[in-house]
Design a protein around this nucleic acid. Structure first.
Lengths: 226, 226
DNA sequence: TCATAAGTGGACGACACCGTCCGTTTGGAT
DNA sequence: ATCCAAACGGACGGTGTCGTCCACTTATGA
């Protein structure tokens, strides 16, 4: 533990540079949460109190910034998976894993978009960590199934499906945590073996006509433009 | 039925104008499906074989274009709801409603984004239709609950939650219909009273490391920018 | 056939974001 | 105290989208 905050916020950097790097990451999370994952780089820079050049020098591409900004959350996910694996009750581990990741997505507003965007190729560095994670997940799933708690036809990819759909929900309704909780509860119940139809969290206040979204032109989109 | 295609494609318009209007709507659906809901207006115009001015004259805002482009799908949703209400078996009606809307979201690629974007305020014109839809939905839900098929603590807003999360999923994985089907099946099962854990459709090919998404800068986002 | 109003298309100015270049400032080692 | 490489910030040219304006074309009714 010789290098302390150095590792998280950049080693071999001059003191001021390291400080700025940290500020940028904080600002990035805030801005991404507020304006979506592709807010102008300049906005992040301004919020961090640095010039654009500094931002670009530290993070050459938006992708690099996004990844760095949410690396901590990604690590949390991995840690939670490890903890889940360590739980003597595999179903409880599985449940906590899912609930915790969803809670993270709900709370860290910019995270869901980053989460979805992070799945793709690139991220070559993390490939190994990912492979490990996938192994762990498979083990957890098998154990929970062997314990008779997780339905036998549950497939590990179902977790990704569930997490991605939850991402979509919290992106559409960033402030309706009731909705998120409901979805999580429903999904967990459908993953269980027995229809242990327990009590659900309270429903969302959502109705077909009252939805807290704006309509202005700029909206969520997909890949390239033209 | 005096005015025929006039109503769908613009009344009181000159013949050529009406034709162009139709072309624009077709082009818009295609472009939105391919490039996301905020592809450049010029792209739509080019694809439709008209000038930008024509596009803007007919649809002053992107929002108007989106709404018009997917009005048909919205109407389909409403029709399906009516059909569901007419089904003697309320649970089957409910199930078909959910499955059909999800199928529509899956097939009409641009539709999910439009669906999410359409919920918000504006749309004042359709408010009445919406209120009607909400009434119908509540009736359907109550009937299905009375029949003992839909769990008693199901809340109408849960349908919106389910649909929105499904939107998120198909937006993230536009080509993985297996994932969509799985989610639909899981949700329907968790809505049922008895844990009639029937067979699920085949799982998605999704894994933690292999995901068919791109990473380039332009990404899904939320409302305003700065 | 003709008159004309409705319709059309592309050029154009305004604007926002991107990412780099460069002159200035500053941390930290001697 | 001095020095310089590292770090900084803002200005700037490039690019792409928006939405309007206007001169030209065409459908339609007399």
């Amino acid at each position: 533990m010789v290098e302390d905050s150095s590792r998280i916020a950049g080693p071999g950097l001059r003191a001021d540079a390291r400080r700025n790097r940290g500020r940028i990451l904080v600002a990035a999370r805030a801005v991404f949460a507020e304006h979506g994952i592709d807010a102008p780089m300049a906005t992040v820079a301004r919020r961090a109190g640095v010039g654009v050049a500094t931002l670009y020098r530290r993070f050459p591409t938006r992708d690099a910034l996004v990844r760095a900004a949410f690396a901590q959350q990604m690590e949390t996910c991995a840690r939670v998976l490890t903890e889940a694996l360590a739980d003597p009750d595999p179903w409880r581990g599985f449940q906590r894993l899912f609930e915790t990741v969803c809670e993270l997505q709900r709370k860290e507003q910019g995270f869901p978009a980053a989460f979805v965007a992070a799945f793709p190729g690139s991220m070559a560095e993390h490939t190994q960590a990912r492979e490990r994670a996938e192994q762990d997940l498979m083990t957890l799933v098998r154990r929970a199934q062997a314990a008779g708690a997780l339905r036998a036809d549950f497939h590990p990819s179902d977790l990704a499906v569930a997490l991605l759909s939850h991402c979509g929900l919290v992106t559409a309704l960033p402030h309706d945590s009731a909705a998120s909780r409901r979805l999580v509860a429903y999904l967990l119940q459908s993953f269980r073996t027995e229809a242990a139809h327990g009590a659900l969290p309270p429903p969302s206040a959502l109705s077909l006509r009252n939805l807290p979204l704006e309509v202005d032109g700029s909206q969520r989109q997909r890949p390239s433009r033209a």
